[in-house]
Structure formats: structure tokens, C-alpha cells
């Protein structure tokens, strides 16, 4: 057996499993712990052997208003995704099919905004929204903020997908007399459908998982699941069972969604390189 086959047959799979377990273990542990009582969760003797309980979940829905946070997460993520696409599709369309001299610069500039530390604008954002605009802790604010955060990456993704459409097909459409909306609706969107779905999915996931701003710009009204987790975090680590249950219930929906849309997700994350 030569070097290559040893590598291919034993070492590579072992490495793959190793990495997979490394990534999966914390999630497993979170779910596992969510079935322990807070008291059991910190006792070493109950590390693996314990009496499973749904107490945390019951508690969460009855006393901590899980459903309100969940509904807020759904509302803000869905509307933010829709808004991002409504702005992003025409923007990416224009850049892909009618580029100007500075289109490339604009794209790079948009991405560079992602490199700005969010903390740098924390104070102005809080001040503006709370004292000036009076939209602190509203769905409206969270939807706008989530859209703005994701717009650069969404435009980039859509731009690369639109770029894949041959120019001649668009020109054939022009010869056939299709107007700009018809062009988007009948030609561009059907051809970029897979890419669009991947983009929307990824945008939705990013919105759902966003924590920095949703935690800081809400109190109760528009608070999302990120806020719920944050609220159950005790620095002394006394409520691990409860925290784990809340976390599990927060990431659960998105994991299920991701599971069913694995293909689109991979496509989206690799910018269509894997087909």
C-alpha cells in the first residue's frame, strides 16, 4: 500500500471525523445539558448519568416568554431578508449588467464597510435611535439595521450570480423587446433562481443569528431570541440548564432550516463554485 492510499483511506477520514466532532461537540453538549436541571448541570457526578427533565423547556415557555422572542426573531429576519433583497436585486442587477467606470470600486467599498468594528458606532446608534429618532426597541429599527448589515454581502453574492448569466441572453431579450422589469422577471430571476434562493437563505440565517445589535438596540418590544439568550446568561454560571434550553430552542429552527437546504447553503457560501 503506498503513501497516498494510506492517507486517503485512514488519515483523511480520521481528520474529517476529528474536525466534525470538534465542531459538533459544543452543540451536542448544549442540547444534552438542556435536559438537566440547573442544579444537576454543575455537579460532576451527573456529568453523563442524570435524570432527563423537560423542566427547562416548560419553564422557558411559561415564565420567560419564549414565543414572543421567537415571533420577533421571525418577523425581523423575514422582513429584513425581504427588504435586503428588494434593495439588493436591482442594485446588483445594475452593477452586473450596466457597470459604470466605478462599479468595481463601489463593490469593494461596500465590502469594506463590513470591516468597520460595530462597536465604533454603538454610541451614535444608541443615541440617535433612542433620543433623537425615538425608534429604539422597535421592529422597524431592527429590520433596518439587519438589512443594512447584510446588504453588502447580499449585493456581492447576487452580483456574482448575475455575472454568470451570459450577456447575449440579456441582449436577445432586448432584441425581443422586453422592458426592464420583464427582463428582471422573465430572464434574470429565473436564471439566477438558485443563487437567489441561496442568498436569501444565507441572509435569513445571518439575520436570525445577529446578536450584537439586536441585543443592544432592544429591551422588550422588539427583542429577539439572541436577546433571550443574553438575558438568561448569568456570569456566575448558575443556570446552565436553563441557558442551554434557551439556546437550543433559539438555534433549533435555523438548524432545521439549514438541514433541509444544505445544497443551497453550500452553494451560497461558496459563491456558486460548488454545483
Amino acid at each position: 500500500m503506498n503513501q497516498k492510499t494510506i492517507f486517503a483511506r485512514f488519515i483523511r477520514p480520521s481528520l474529517a471525523w476529528g474536525v466534525a466532532i470538534l465542531f459538533f461537540f459544543p452543540i451536542f453538549w448544549m442540547v444534552f445539558t438542556s435536559f438537566k436541571t440547573d442544579a444537576d448541570a454543575v455537579k460532576p457526578e451527573y456529568l453523563f448519568l442524570f435524570t432527563p427533565t423537560f423542566e427547562n423547556y416548560v419553564n422557558m415557555t411559561e415564565n420567560y416568554d419564549y414565543w414572543r422572542f421567537a415571533v420577533n426573531s421571525v418577523i425581523t429576519s423575514v422582513f429584513a431578508t425581504v427588504l435586503t433583497l428588494v434593495v439588493g436585486v436591482p442594485a446588483a442587477y445594475a452593477m452586473a449588467f450596466d457597470p459604470g467606470r466605478h462599479t468595481k470600486d463601489i463593490l469593494v467599498w461596500m465590502l469594506s464597510t463590513k470591516m468597520l468594528p460595530a462597536a465604533a458606532v454603538l454610541y451614535p446608534m444608541t443615541f440617535l435611535t433612542k433620543n433623537f429618532l425615538g425608534i429604539f426597541d422597535t421592529h422597524f429599527l431592527i429590520i433596518i439595521v439587519l438589512s443594512l448589515i447584510n446588504l453588502p454581502i447580499v449585493i456581492w453574492m447576487l452580483f456574482t450570480y448575475f455575472k454568470e448569466i451570459p450577456k447575449e441572453i440579456i441582449e436577445a431579450g432586448k432584441m425581443d423587446g422586453v422592458n426592464i422589469w420583464g427582463e428582471i422577471k422573465d430572464i434574470v430571476l429565473p436564471l439566477a433562481w438558485g443563487g437567489l434562493a441561496s442568498t436569501a437563505l444565507l441572509c435569513f440565517i445571518f439575520c436570525w443569528n445577529e446578536a450584537y445589535w439586536t441585543v443592544r438596540l432592544t429591551t422588550t418590544e422588539a427583542a429577539t431570541l439572541s436577546k433571550l439568550i443574553e438575558g438568561n446568561r448569568a456570569p456566575e454560571g448558575l443556570f446552565f440548564g436553563r441557558l442551554s434550553a434557551v439556546s437550543t430552542a433559539a438555534v433549533g429552527p435555523i438548524v432545521v432550516l439549514g438541514w433541509f437546504c444544505q445544497k443551497q447553503l453550500v452553494r451560497g457560501l461558496t459563491f456558486g463554485a460548488v454545483k
Partner: peptide, 20 residues
């Protein structure tokens, strides 16, 4: 005048059919 209003039709080298 817009392309579709010129009374011309074009056949492209790459065919440029609508794939969908």
C-alpha cells in the same frame, strides 16, 4: 430607436437561447 422597434432580428454566435 430601441432594438425591438427597428424591425431587425439577430442570430447570435452563441445562440443566446433562453435556457429556462
Amino acid at each position: 430607436v430601441a432594438p425591438s422597434k427597428r424591425g431587425v432580428a439577430m442570430v447570435f454566435q452563441t445562440y443566446a437561447l433562453y435556457p429556462h
